[in-house]
Nucleic acid binder design. Structure first.
Length: 342
DNA sequence: AACGCGGGGAA
DNA sequence: TTCCCAGCGTT
């Protein structure tokens, strides 16, 4: 696969002519680039902005990240999703402190060895923070290049990503490697939009784009269809005793691992069934009120929930009792559970 | 290669 | 509703 060498210059000129101002672009230090790239994995720029600023205030350098407490990390990441990312990043920070004296390694190969850093992120850090000619092929770049080259294969295929990586490597500039990496993603984010909505009139490389020439931008890229989500029914209990609410820590593995939750059980229980269930759990309840239904959609699963507010006489064991203020300020409660309020 | 892993904004 | 997002690690 061959990419026109002219793309490099065209994209750099276009990038210079005006690109988005983003917090992590103000100071592209290795740490800033690293943290921003981890946050941006499968996450939109607009969602990341406030998280990035807050994160940098609390944990301004690698040493601080390496030493941070779990609950602090969770609270900083709460609502961003894919929580594994922040723990892997901390593991990497510890490795960098121990093995690299607190300095981010620079080579693509070394970066790739760190937890949470895959081919895309290693390329992004190597090029943006360390100015090396290493491509970073993300979802934007896949879409842009699929259209430019008229790629007929499904873009999720590993081989397609490999082909794009090596085709890009050949046309990387000598200087401004990071700007070139970002120009490709910027193009995908603001011009070469998905779902047949590209703004080809604004595109600096339309002259080299096969999909544009053939009027096929609405057909490309080709993506494999995804599997339907499974549905899980749950009954969620807001146990209230005085001004305290019961929460508990989720399991260490699986969905939302390490975060907190309201006590809940499988199945959609009626009020009578819920009362019976709670009694079997040894909970003495004073009053139970239906809170209605809520639906929460994850990528691979959908929760259909019914909630009950339960007034209790005492704070029973196996849970932690906290105020709503604590839930706000200290507890990382997934948004799935925030559908229900006292 | 397929799957698990979040959440929200836009069409 | 569906789609997609500056993906990674495990199986």
């Amino acid at each position: 696969m061959i990419l026109p060498a002219a793309l490099t210059k065209q994209l750099l000129v276009w990038y210079d002519s005006g690109h988005r101002e983003l917090p992590w672009r103000e100071n592209p230090s290795p740490y800033y680039v690293w943290v921003s790239e981890i946050m941006l994995q499968q996450t939109r720029v607009e969602a990341v902005k406030p998280y990035f600023s807050r994160f940098m205030k609390v944990l301004p350098n690698i040493a601080a990240l390496a030493a941070a407490e779990e609950e602090v990390l969770l609270k900083l990441w709460e609502g961003l999703g894919y929580y594994r990312r922040v723990f892997q990043m901390q593991r990497a920070a510890v490795i960098i402190m121990e093995r690299y004296g607190g300095r981010m390694p620079q080579s693509y190969a070394e970066l790739l060895c760190l937890p949470g850093i895959g081919e895309y992120t290693a390329g992004a850090i190597a090029s943006i923070a360390f100015h090396q000619p290493v491509p970073a092929v993300d979802g934007n770049v896949l879409r842009v290049l699929a259209r430019v080259t008229g790629e007929e294969r499904e873009i999720q295929l590993e081989q397609v990503k490999k082909d794009f990586f090596f085709a890009l490597k050949k046309i990387y500039p000598q200087k401004r490697c990071g700007d070139f990496t970002q120009s490709l993603m910027e193009l995908g984010a603001v011009v070469c939009l998905p779902n047949g909505m590209p703004k080809c009139g604004d595109c600096p490389i339309a002259d080299w784009c096969l999909a544009f020439q053939q009027n096929r931008t609405d057909e490309l890229p080709i993506k494999k269809e995804k599997k339907p989500r499974r549905i899980e029914e749950k009954t969620v209990f807001l146990l209230q005793c005085g001004d305290k609410i019961a929460v508990r820590k989720r399991m260490e593995k699986g969905l939302l691992s390490g975060l907190w939750e309201y006590p809940n059980t499988e199945g959609c229980l009626s009020k009578i069934e819920a009362e019976k269930y709670l009694k079997a759990q040894g909970i003495v309840l004073e009053k139970i009120t239906a809170l209605g239904k809520a639906r929460h959609v994850f990528t691979h699963v959908e929760w259909h929930m019914i909630g009950y507010l339960v007034l209790c006489r005492k704070e029973y064991k196996d849970t932690v009792w906290v105020t709503s203020k604590q839930i706000e300020q200290e507890i990382s409660l997934p948004s799935a559970f925030r559908h229900f309020k006292v």
